[in-house]
């Protein structure tokens, strides 16, 4: 319960994005990221779950101030799993045009370079300095 509330406080969700608890199970089970969650859960006050949302933000801000490295590790872990979650990926694809999922093998079209772009810099005088060798 506390993990879900903790993640919902970090990533509240909105009309499109889901709240952070969608990654609670994956985060707890993750071999590299799981310990980051455990460290912060151990620092939460007993009444965290009963606090109103605004108070939870204040609570986490206080923990971040006193345990910044551990808190940063949790944020890194939470963001990493959240932004690779299928529900979040679907929101990104629908709202931004970004194609979520592996960059390969699809990639993106490679347009040809247009040399006309260089019309101005191509006619500049050399701007590298001569050296004794170049002058001989």
């Amino acid at each position: 319960m506390s993990a879900a509330l903790l993640l919902d406080t970090l990533l509240p969700g909105d009309e499109a994005f889901p709240p952070g608890h969608v990654v609670a199970e994956a985060l707890a089970a993750h071999d590299r990221f799981g310990p980051a969650l455990e460290r912060i859960l151990a620092l939460l006050p007993e009444d965290f779950a009963s606090q109103p949302p605004e108070a939870r933000v204040t609570t986490l801000a206080a923990i971040e101030a006193t345990h910044s490295e551990a808190f940063s590790a949790l944020v890194l872990a939470a963001y990493s799993l959240y932004y690779t979650h299928p529900k979040v990926a679907a929101v990104l694809e629908a709202s931004t045009g970004y194609r979520a999922g592996p960059p390969q093998p699809g990639g993106h079209a490679l347009a040809p370079f247009d040399p006309a772009l260089l019309a101005i810099p191509a006619v500049r005088a050399p701007l590298y300095r001569p050296t004794p060798e170049a002058e001989t």
Binding site: T9, L11, P12, V57, L60, A78, T96
Partner: peptide, 14 residues
């Protein structure tokens, strides 16, 4: 993180 997260993400992503 927190209440402004998603709005800020939309501003900068891409």
């Amino acid at each position: 993180w927190g209440p402004g997260h998603h709005a800020r993400f939309r501003q900068v992503f891409g």
